[in-house]
Design a protein around this nucleic acid. Structure first.
Lengths: 317, 317
DNA sequence: CCTAATTTTGCACAAAAGTGCCAATATTTA
DNA sequence: TAAATATTGGCACTTTTGTGCAAAATTAGG
């Protein structure tokens, strides 16, 4: 490539990108055919004569999004940056906010929005700044926690959401895990529950948390499990849960007594939901999140950088 | 400006400028209306989120071109870079080449192209690489030098040009300065000269050199001047010449005996020429070039960086 | 110096981007 | 909380840009 030519390309690029000439103006100015200018500009880019830099933009984060999106066939993904030394509480809070803003962005006037249990979901709604008025319906996707954790009740989430977004909310009056299949079935089939079941079949948006391994003690609802349940889960190598439904590392849902006693939307239902959104973070949950994503139940993931990185690491092995 | 918003703008800019998405694709991807994307991109530029840098581009040189172009109301300008320590011969040669390429770029099939005397013009044509076939007519704009400088005869230039570009050339069979007005008028009005005069009236392109002060001894034709002429030119403060026509620093053409004895296209004729191109360089000629430009006779200048800089310096005083 | 191969142009047409307008939303301010 | 201000959505329309193809120009090889 001759030097004069390079200078000419640079001049064209300068006029176009810096001085905001149109290609036609440059063409006239330099007596070069317009389409040639177009090609020269492309060439100038290719040769690196034009270098474009985007500030305030983390390419790595974006690549991470793209890679995961592709890998798990997601419709959407949102990864927020991780800052070193930040407390877990703060990390959760930022993730909550991101999820809340995401909901605000995608919610439509008459949507049916479900919430399942999840440490991050609890903090979501409170962080929103400006009320958006809708006539949406907010419905729990699972039963509540044990009475001692009532301040974290899933009913609270849907209630807050309805207040914030101006729609209405339904409550569940039952704990997530019941004593027997008989009672569980009784509740599920009860008159009052039929509204919820109907809504579960027509969800537009579902926000679900993702639980990590049993050893993780942060859970607000797992005190509902019996010792027997725990033994079984350990035996069957439960890796995590979603909507109080446990699965193993291969994405196999752990059926049996526990599941039969659980009040929650069936995971398979979520496949039909236009926005089935998982919200979770932390390195210990990464394997669980990965397994769930591989099941193809969710189509959207909201997480943070460190978690996403870990998910990718364990996926490539 | 909120930080999330900034990140969104950055993301849009990234997709557009780096990943070469179309605005429509981004719109679809992010669920944002296409025209909004267009506006976001503009905003991202304005906010400096997108920074575009042109490498291999000398902004100073470009600014110089723009400034001079504006100052002297030129249609076109070409300033080639100056390299320190380069010999004058080499500088002249590069300028010649630039001028030759410029001619090659603007010449059209049936153009009438005139050449006047000028140290740089002589070297022009020889440097062209690939012949371009035209049916152009090449005509001298001035008479020739003294017999002892015949190898630099203006006829040589037009002859070379015609060979190169495939058209025809006309010659002048007279020196630029004659002994008397009587002889000059005789030649000008002669039958053979009428072709040339006709062409002078219909020039499409005129290449003219620009001469510096009399003390500059490099001239190839000034040995035609008599001692008397020189005294007069000094008295009237000639600053330079173009087409063997002298002018002073105010752009006043020095009329009188000398001009009456000179065989050359009248400078005023050049005002009508679509491409009236001055080609000259050197610091000593700068005042002369400046004075000529100020006369508004030329509409294009081809020079080098150091000369252009000097012209600008003496213009701003 | 000529001819074949490759590259560059010019052109018509297709695709993409920008603009002005107004209504609908969203955000900020008082 | 309401009014004021700013932003986005939606649309028709114009301008600008990109592309495939044929012609011209340049380069490379004999």
């Amino acid at each position: 490539m001759n030097n004069d030519k390079k200078r000419l390309l640079a001049k064209v690029a300068y006029l176009y990108f810096i001085e905001d000439y149109t290609q036609a103006e440059i063409s006239k100015e330099l007596n070069i055919y317009r389409t040639t200018i177009s090609r020269m500009l492309k060439q100038a880019k290719d040769l690196g004569i034009v270098s474009i830099k985007i500030n305030d933009f983390d390419t790595d984060l974006f690549d991470l999004e793209m890679t995961l999106k592709e890998k798990f066939q997601l419709k959407n993904i949102l990864i927020i940056p991780s800052y070193p030394k930040e407390s877990n509480k703060s990390k959760d809070q930022r993730l909550s906010l991101a999820a809340a803003l995401y909901l605000k962005r995608i919610i439509k006037p008459k949507d049916i929005v479900g919430f399942a249990w999840g440490s991050v979901l609890v903090g979501m709604i409170g962080q929103l700044q400006n009320p958006v008025k809708t006539e949406a319906t907010f419905v729990p996707l699972v039963g509540g926690p044990s009475p001692s954790n009532s301040q974290y009740h899933v009913n609270g989430i849907v209630y807050d959401a309805a207040r914030q977004f101006g729609g209405k909310s339904l409550f569940v009056d039952a704990a997530a895990v019941q004593e027997s299949k008989y009672i569980r079935d009784g509740i599920i089939n009860s008159q009052y529950f039929s509204d919820i079941r109907r809504l579960w079949a027509h969800l537009d948006i579902a926000f679900v948390g993702i639980g990590g391994p049993l050893t993780n003690s942060a859970s607000r609802w797992r005190d509902l499990l019996t010792d027997e349940d725990r033994v079984l889960l350990r035996e069957r190598q439960a890796i995590g849960d979603c909507c109080c439904t446990f699965f193993d590392r291969h994405g196999k849902i752990l059926t049996g007594s526990l599941l039969d006693r659980t009040i929650a939307v069936p995971l398979d239902n979520l496949r039909q939901v236009p926005n089935a959104i998982g919200v979770a973070r932390s390195l210990t949950k990464a394997p669980s999140i990965k397994a769930l994503l591989a099941m193809g139940i969710l189509n959207t993931l909201i997480t943070d950088e460190e978690t996403a990185t870990r998910i990718l690491e364990i996926s490539s092995k």
